[in-house]
Computed example of a mutant assay.
Amino acid sequence: MSTALPHITLYTTGTCPYCIRAKQLLAARGVTEYEEIRVDLQPEQRLAMMERSGRRTVPQIFIGATHVGGCDELMALDAAGGLQPLLGA
């Protein structure tokens, strides 16, 4: 019996080491599907990301309606035990 994961959105660029690390952490927690919006390939999406998150840096991570923040915030959430419940695991 598997539960559906919430919709996960990552705003990233192709060469950002923090973006890569965030995706690796999500993969380690069993997340295989997410929407990745590459703001380096779609510059108009950076404005949408900034309006949604209030930040200009990548990655910006949303799990469901929750704005997690960037890679550091994702890692802190995981270390505090808050990521798995947010993922519905």
Rank of each mutant, 00 (worst) to 15 (best):
Q84G: 09
C71A: 10
G30T: 13
L10Q: 01
F62R: 02
T66W: 03
M1A: 13
Q84F: 05
G82W: 14
M1P: 03
E36Y: 05
T3S: 09
D40F: 02
A80L: 09
Q84C: 08
G64Q: 02
L74C: 09
Y11N: 01
R52P: 01
G70I: 01
T9Y: 03
Q60T: 00
P85D: 11
E33Q: 10
T66K: 08
K23V: 02
P17L: 06
V68N: 03
I61V: 04
E73F: 06
A4G: 08
Q42R: 14
M49H: 04
E51C: 06
L47I: 11
V39E: 01
A80P: 11
A28G: 11
G64F: 04
I37Q: 03
I20C: 05
I61W: 04
Q24S: 10
M50D: 04
Y11W: 13
A4Q: 13
I8T: 02
L74M: 10
D72C: 05
A48S: 12
R56T: 13
G70E: 09
G81E: 15
A80E: 15
I37G: 01
M49Y: 05
L26D: 08
E44S: 15
I61C: 04
E44M: 08
V39W: 00
L86P: 05
I8G: 04
E35F: 01
F62W: 06
T3W: 03
K23F: 05
A79W: 08
A80W: 12
Q84P: 12
Y34L: 09
G69R: 02
D40N: 08
M75I: 14
F62M: 01
L83R: 10
C71S: 11
E44D: 15
E73L: 07
T9W: 00
D40I: 07
Q24A: 14
M50G: 03
L86Y: 08
T12L: 01
I8E: 00
A27T: 15
A79P: 06
D78E: 14
D72G: 07
I37Y: 04
P6C: 02
Y34R: 05
Q84L: 12
D72N: 12
V68D: 04
T9H: 00
G70Q: 08
T12G: 02
Q84K: 13
A48E: 13
D40P: 02
L25K: 12
G14N: 10
G30I: 09
I63W: 02
E44Q: 14
E51R: 15
R46S: 10
T32R: 13
T66Y: 06
Q42E: 15
G69I: 05
L26S: 09
P43W: 06
L10T: 04
L41P: 00
T13Q: 05
G82E: 15
C16S: 13
T57R: 07
L10V: 14
Q45A: 14
Y11L: 03
L5N: 00
C16F: 10
T12V: 11
V31E: 07
I63Y: 01
R21I: 00
A80K: 15
E44L: 11
E36G: 06
L25Q: 06
D40C: 06
T9C: 02
